[in-house]
Write a protein that binds this DNA or RNA. Structure first.
Lengths: 167, 167
DNA sequence: ACCATATAGTGCGACATCGAACAATAATGG
DNA sequence: CCATTATTGTTCGATGTCGCACTATATGGT
């Protein structure tokens, strides 16, 4: 859980005292704090416009299947989102219950399955994009697109490092 | 839930089609995706070295109380972390059960309380910082501190915009 | 003083998350 | 071929998150 660093951007002392911590740990503490708060706020904001019973996770999976490709396996999807496979099982069960995806056996591997979008799933995704965009519309003008563009590759790099370090 | 944008950094089409979405919505979709994954990975990594029954939230609150000041009210802490106050009630209950904080009545407002650190709480925080730092030590050299320093103020600004838009 | 409204914190219920253990199937190696 | 090990997906249980409703107290207007 992230804390509001703006309230405590003091001298930042005492974080490395008496340890062999590498330089920069405090910096990444702060960075992860900010990231955590933004994640929290953006997720809450987006979810508030999704219909009842639908999470951000559901939308994100539909979006992924649309943008990448149909027919992914549950494990592939779980890896794409960096969540445990049990969490993805749960999410997919919800999507299936809503009729937004269809689970088919995976030809070529009887252990596995494939996740296919339905027409209802595609329709829901389109509507969700519109709704979420509308929710962010009032604040989008306040956000500096150039800066966001600048931060994006940095974040990508950080993610990749964390990802590979996950073993 | 964030998806792995590295697997789908294509032409990003179809996000604004047929809507009045402002320019840049797609950009922020991507940004929030990356942020979500980083939050997920860093939280999981940090929690894995915390003792059983202790969450990242617990550590973060202790850290906040140490860095800002003792005697904050639960609501102040909830606001600092941008979480609902019910979540903070739960977290504080856990901290109190572990003997890491002490809840006292708030002189001057009988509705309110104050949260005070105990010696055990301070000791736990110190150990947690050492443990988390150690967990991140192997990957810290792979992270570019200059870039992180560059991204931090941008993220702060984004957070502030989201925060004020929350009403 | 009184009443309406706002605010602090909590109880509760619904539900998401995720680790552990498991069953089914695949892959590997002898 | 068989045995061992790895992998996919699920079930189950424990627990965190958070919206709703509620109580207690404060505050502001008349």
């Amino acid at each position: 859980m992230p804390e509001d660093a703006s309230k405590s951007q003091g001298q930042n002392q005492g974080q490395n005292q008496g340890s062999t911590a590498p330089a920069g740990v405090g910096l990444f503490f702060e960075l992860f704090n900010e990231i955590g708060i933004i994640e929290q706020l953006s997720r809450t904001m987006a979810q508030s416009v999704l219909p009842d019973g639908l999470m951000m996770t559901h939308f994100s999976v539909l979006n992924h299947l649309t943008r990448v490709a149909d027919g992914r396996t549950p494990l592939e999807i779980a890896r794409a989102f960096q969540v445990p496979k049990t969490s993805m099982t749960h999410t997919l069960k919800g999507l299936e219950a809503h009729g937004f995806v269809e689970m088919r056996p995976n030809p070529g591997d009887a252990r596995s399955k494939q996740v296919w979008l339905t027409d209802a799933g595609r329709a829901f995704r389109a509507k969700a994009i519109a709704d979420i965009s509308a929710a962010f519309a009032p604040i989008a003008p306040m956000l500096d697109a150039d800066k966001a563009e600048e931060a994006l590759p940095i974040l990508r790099e950080i993610r990749q490092v964390l990802d590979t370090a996950r073993d």
